[in-house]
Write a protein that binds this DNA or RNA. Structure first.
Length: 815
RNA sequence: GUCGGCGUGGCGGAACGGCAGACGCGCCAGCCUUAGGAGCUGGUGCCCGAAAGGGCGUGGAGGUUCAAAUCCUCUCGCCGACACCA
C-alpha cells in the first residue's frame, strides 16, 4: 500500500517503531510502587482475546493510553496495566468449530499474542510487568483462593434451584446473562428452565449496600447507576397473612407494596408452582388447575415473560378471608404470578393494578375502586388507576391520602399480628457454576461422609487437566480423596463463571507477582480505588456490579480499605461501519495493522479521537482520516520545512501567537480532563493554523516566541500522537522524552483577548458588529452602537426603551 | 408499556440562555508543479440579488425571555435499557 505522505517528509513508518522501542527500553509506563508522586490508577477494561483487534476495540485503548500519557506529564505516578480475560466459552466453541482439535489454551494464547502486538504498533503503552492472564494457574490459583474466602464466610453455597440452561453452550447461566429469555451469547437461542444443584454467591446479602453506595459514585454516568438500581430492584412493602376459608391454621401469605389498596382485593392469585395449589384445589376444579400448572411449566420462558394477554388462570375452588374487612375472596392460580418473587402469591386489586385488571377482565372477576384521584370515584374503569388519591370504600381508613396511609396501615397490620413490613429485591443470588471445561475449577471436594469439603489452601491450585473434555467426563480429574477422612471422594467438576475472574483483576495488578496471596493489601490500598475506569456500557450491570460486590466482601474480610473499586467510570460509545457496530462477526472491522501501514499509528489515533464525542456511538468513515493525516503533516512541516508556506502579508504578531498558545493550552487541558477529545483535536488544529498564520505574515522562526509556541503544540499533541510528539520534540532539542516532559501551563491573563467583537442587536436581531476593547463600559458600548448606520436604520428613528448589555459580548437595543 | 438518550449544512460534528454551523471530510475556484490522490490561497447553510444588501434557518407546534439549538409543555421520528418484580 502506498503511503499518502511522500512529499511532506513525515513518514510514520520510519519513526514509529523506533520510538516504540525507546519507550519499551526506558520502561516509560512502569509504575513505581514507592513513588512520592500522587498516584493515578488508570484502567481500561481488559479484553477477552477472541482474535485480532479492530478499530472499534481500539478506541478504548487509545483513550486509556492518551489519559495515561497526559496524567504522567501532569506529574502523576500512573498505574496503567493490561491483561486478558482469558477463560470463556468462545475458546471452546472456536476450537470445536474448526474441528482440528485446537486446544482452547493454544487458541487463547495465540490471540493474546496477536492483540498484544497490535496494541504495540498503535503506540499504546502498558506496564507489561503486571500483565495478568486469568487462565494462567498463577492467576486462577488466587481466584480459587478467593472462592474459598467466600465459602468460609458463608457467601458461597450450593443449592437446588430452577436455573437457566443454554442448550447451545450446554451450561447454566446467571440471571444477568439471560436477555429477554434468551442466552446473552446467542440472541436467537431461548434458555430452558432446569432444576439443578448449583453453586451460588450470596450477592443478595449485599443488596442494600450495593444499592445505597451507588450514591457515593458521583463520577459514574447517571445511566449506569440507574441501571444498577433497577437491577437490584429494592421495594418496600408489607407481607400479609390471609386465612383460608375452611382450612383452619392454613394461610396464604402475600407481599404488596400497596397496603392502601387492601380493601380493593377482589381475588387472590397463587403462582402455578406454589405449594398451596395442590393443597387447596377442590375436586371439581382439579382438572382445570392442573391444566394451568402443566401448561405454564411447559410454556417457554419467553412466552411467560410476555405481558400479552391471554393469560393462563383457573379458580382453585378455595377462598381466602381478607383480614382487614373479613370478606371472602376466591383464590385463583395464574401464570402471571412468579414463584421467584415475593411470596409467590398475590392479592389482586384489579382497580389499581394493571396486571390484575387484565386478569379480572379476562376471567370476568369483580373490580372495585378504593383509591379516588380527586376524592371522587371514577365509576366504570377502562384501566387500573395506579396513581395517588384518597382512600374510599375502605372502612375506617376512608379519606386518608393513599401515599401517606402506608405507615398507618402497616402499623395496623403489625398491631393485629396479621403481617409485617418487608423489603424485597429483584436481585437474585449469583449463579456461578458452569458445566464447561475452559474455566476456573471450583476448589471443593464432595465426600459421602463429610459432605462438601474445601480443597486445603496448600493444595491449590486445582489445575485444569490438559486434556480437553468436560471435567465430569474425566475421572483422572475428579477421582480424589476426602481431605478430612481420606475416603474416596469426587472433585467438583463445575468451573466458575468467568465474571468471577474479572471481579478482582484490578486488585491483582497492584501486586501481580505476589505468590503468597491474591494481592498484597498494602499495595492494593496504595493504588486503589481505580481513579479512572474506561469500558463499554454493556458491562453496566454484570461486571461492574460483581466487581463492586467483590470489593465489599474483601473489605469486610479486612483485605481492602476501599469499599468501591472504581471512583470514576467512563463508558465509551461504539464505532459503527455501514450502519452496524464494528465486529468481527459482521465482517466490517477495520484492522489497525492496515491503517498503521498506510497512515501511521498517530493518524489512526488522532482520527479515533476526532471522530466524535467519545461517549456516543459514531460512524466510521474511510475517507475522513485524511484530515488527521494532513494535520500531522502540517505540524511536521511547521518544525521541519522552512520554505513550505506562502507569505501572504497578513500581520505576524507575537502577541497574537502567544495568546493563541495560552488559549490552546487551556482548551486542550480542559478537554482532556473532561473527555472531550474531539474538540481537543480541533483546538490543536487551530493552534497549528495559528502558527502557520504567524509564518505566513512574515513571523520569524528563530525567535523565542516561535520556539515556545511550537514546543507547546508538540507537548499538547503528544498524548494523542506520541510518535510525532517524540520525534519533533527531539528535533526541537527538547530535553529527555516528550513522554516525560512537564505539561504546559497557561496564564489566564495572557490568554485573554484585549479586543472583542461586540454584537449589536436591535430587538434581538443582529444588525452590526464592532470591535471594542475588552472591558468596555455599557455607556461606551451604547455610543458605539448608536454610531452604526445599520443600527440607526433598524431603529428607524425610535429611541431604545431598554438596553441589555452583556460585557464583551453583546448589546441589545429594544425600541 | 415504563425509563433514558438523541434529532443542527452534502457528511462527521461545534456552540457557559448571548455572533448557529468551530474543527475536519467532501466539493468549487486559483496558485505551484513534468505530474498530482501532494502542498499553498480563497470560497462553500438555504433563498432572492450582478453586487451592496435582505429574508429564512437547529425534526414539528406552542410557551417563557430583551435574547432559545440550549429552558418549559405537547407532538413526530430514531436509538438504547428494562419489561408481569405485585
Amino acid at each position: 500500500m502506498e503511503t499518502r505522505s511522500r512529499r511532506s517528509g513525515y513518514i510514520p513508518q520510519e519513526i514509529e517503531p523506533r520510538w516504540q522501542k525507546v519507550w519499551a527500553e526506558r520502561g516509560v509506563m512502569k509504575a513505581d510502587d514507592a513513588s512520592a508522586k500522587p498516584k493515578f490508577y488508570n484502567l481500561v477494561m481488559f479484553p477477552y482475546p477472541s482474535g485480532p483487534l479492530h478499530m472499534g476495540h481500539m478506541r478504548n485503548y487509545v483513550i486509556g493510553d492518551l489519559l495515561s500519557r497526559f496524567k504522567r506529564m501532569q506529574g502523576f505516578e500512573v498505574l496503567n496495566p493490561m491483561g486478558w480475560d482469558a477463560f470463556g466459552l468462545p475458546a471452546e466453541n472456536d476450537a470445536i468449530k474448526r474441528g482440528g482439535g485446537v486446544h482452547p489454551e493454544v487458541w487463547t494464547r495465540g490471540n493474546i499474542a496477536i492483540a498484544k502486538r497490535q496494541l504495540g504498533i498503535m503506540g499504546v503503552l502498558y506496564d507489561w510487568d503486571r500483565e495478568v492472564t486469568t487462565c494462567d494457574p498463577s492467576y486462577y490459583r488466587w481466584t480459587q483462593e478467593l472462592f474459598l474466602l467466600f465459602f468460609e464466610r458463608g457467601l458461597a453455597h450450593r443449592m437446588m434451584s430452577p436455573v437457566n440452561w443454554c442448550p447451545v453452550d450446554k451450561t447454566v447461566l446467571a440471571n444477568e446473562q439471560v436477555i429477554n429469555g434468551r442466552c446473552w451469547r446467542h440472541p436467537d437461542v431461548e434458555v430452558e428452565k432446569r432444576d439443578l444443584e448449583q453453586w451460588f454467591l450470596r450477592i443478595t446479602e449485599y443488596a442494600d449496600r450495593l444499592l445505597d453506595d451507588l450514591s457515593l459514585l458521583d463520577h459514574w454516568p447517571e445511566k449506569v447507576r440507574v441501571m444498577q438500581a433497577n437491577w437490584i430492584g429494592r421495594s418496600h412493602g408489607v407481607e400479609v397473612e390471609f386465612p383460608i376459608d375452611g382450612h383452619p391454621g392454613e394461610s396464604m401469605r402475600i407481599y404488596t407494596t400497596r397496603p392502601d389498596t387492601l380493601f380493593g382485593v377482589t381475588f387472590m392469585v397463587l403462582a402455578p408452582e406454589h405449594p398451596l395449589v395442590e393443597k387447596l384445589t377442590v375436586g371439581a376444579r382439579r382438572a382445570a388447575v392442573r391444566e394451568v400448572v402443566e401448561s405454564s411449566r411447559k410454556a417457554r420462558e419467553i412466552d411467560r415473560m410476555s405481558s400479552e394477554v391471554p393469560r393462563l388462570g383457573a379458580f382453585t375452588g378455595a377462598y381466602a378471608i381478607n383480614p382487614l374487612n373479613g370478606e371472602k375472596v376466591a383464590i385463583w392460580v395464574g401464570d402471571y404470578v412468579l414463584i421467584t418473587y415475593g411470596t409467590g402469591a398475590i392479592m389482586a386489586v384489579p382497580g389499581h393494578d394493571q396486571r390484575d385488571f387484565a386478569f379480572a377482565r379476562q376471567f370476568g372477576l369483580p373490580i372495585r375502586e378504593v383509591i379516588a384521584p380527586a376524592g371522587q370515584a371514577q365509576g366504570e374503569l377502562e384501566a387500573a388507576y395506579t396513581g395517588p388519591g384518597s382512600m374510599i370504600n375502605s372502612g375506617e381508613f376512608d379519606g386518608l391520602d393513599s401515599k401517606a396511609s402506608f405507615d398507618r396501615i402497616a402499623e395496623f397490620i403489625e398491631a393485629k399480628g396479621i403481617g409485617k413490613r418487608s423489603v424485597k429485591y429483584r436481585l437474585r443470588d449469583w449463579l456461578i457454576s458452569r458445566q464447561r471445561y475452559w474455566g476456573c475449577p471450583i476448589p471443593v471436594i464432595h465426600c459421602e461422609v463429610d459432605g462438601i469439603v474445601a480443597v486445603p489452601h496448600s493444595e491449590l491450585p486445582v489445575l485444569l487437566p490438559r486434556e480437553y473434555k468436560p471435567l465430569g467426563d474425566n475421572p483422572d480429574f475428579w477421582r480424589t480423596k476426602c481431605p478430612k477422612c481420606g475416603r474416596d471422594a469426587r472433585r467438583e467438576t463445575d468451573t466458575m463463571d468467568t465474571f468471577i475472574d474479572s471481579s478482582w483483576y484490578f486488585l491483582r495488578y497492584t501486586s501481580a507477582h505476589n505468590n503468597t496471596q491474591p494481592f498484597d493489601s498494602e499495595l492494593a490500598n496504595h493504588w486503589m480505588a481505580v481513579d479512572q475506569y474506561t469500558g463499554g456500557i454493556e458491562h453496566a450491570i454484570l461486571h461492574l456490579l460483581y466487581s463492586r460486590f467483590f470489593q465489599k466482601v474483601l473489605h469486610d474480610a479486612g483485605r481492602a480499605d476501599t469499599t468501591e473499586p472504581f471512583a470514576r467510570l467512563f463508558t465509551q460509545g461504539m464505532i459503527r461501519r455501514g450502519g452496524l457496530v464494528m465486529a468481527k462477526s459482521k465482517g466490517n472491522g477495520v484492522a489497525p495493522d492496515d491503517l498503521v501501514a498506510r497512515d501511521g499509528a498517530d493518524a489512526a489515533r488522532v482520527y479515533e479521537m476526532f471522530i466524535g464525542p467519545p461517549d456516543e456511538d459514531v460512524e466510521w468513515s474511510d475517507s475522513a482520516i485524511a484530515g488527521p493525516v494532513r494535520f500531522l503533516q502540517h505540524v511536521w512541516r511547521l518544525v521541519d520545512a522552512p520554505g513550505s508556506f506562502q507569505v501572504t502579508g497578513s500581520d505576524a504578531s507575537a502577541d497574537v501567537l502567544r495568546r493563541r498558545v495560552h488559549q490552546a493550552i487551556r482548551k486542550v487541558t480542559e478537554d482532556y480532563e473532561g473527555f472531550h477529545f474531539n474538540t481537543a483535536v480541533a483546538a490543536l488544529m487551530e493552534l497549528a493554523n495559528a502558527l502557520q498564520a504567524y509564518l505566513a505574515g512574515g513571523g520569524r522562526r528563530d525567535d523565542s516566541d516561535w520556539d515556545w509556541a511550537l514546543r507547546s503544540l508538540i507537548l499538547l499533541l503528544n498524548p494523542m500522537a506520541p510518535h510525532v510528539g517524540e520525534e519533533l520534540w527531539s528535533r526541537l532539542g527538547g530535553k529527555g522524552l516528550a513522554a516525560d516532559a512537564a505539561w504546559p501551563q497557561y496564564d489566564p491573563a495572557s490568554a485573554a483577548e484585549p479586543e472583542v467583537t461586540l454584537v449589536i442587536q436591535v430587538a434581538g436581531k443582529v444588525r452590526d458588529r464592532a470591535t471594542v476593547p475588552a472591558g468596555t463600559t455599557e455607556g461606551a458600548a451604547l455610543e458605539t452602537a448608536m454610531r452604526s448606520e445599520k443600527v440607526r436604520a433598524a431603529l428607524a428613528g425610535r429611541a431604545p426603551s431598554k438596553v441589555v448589555y452583556v460585557p464583551d459580548r453583546l448589546i441589545n437595543l429594544v425600541p
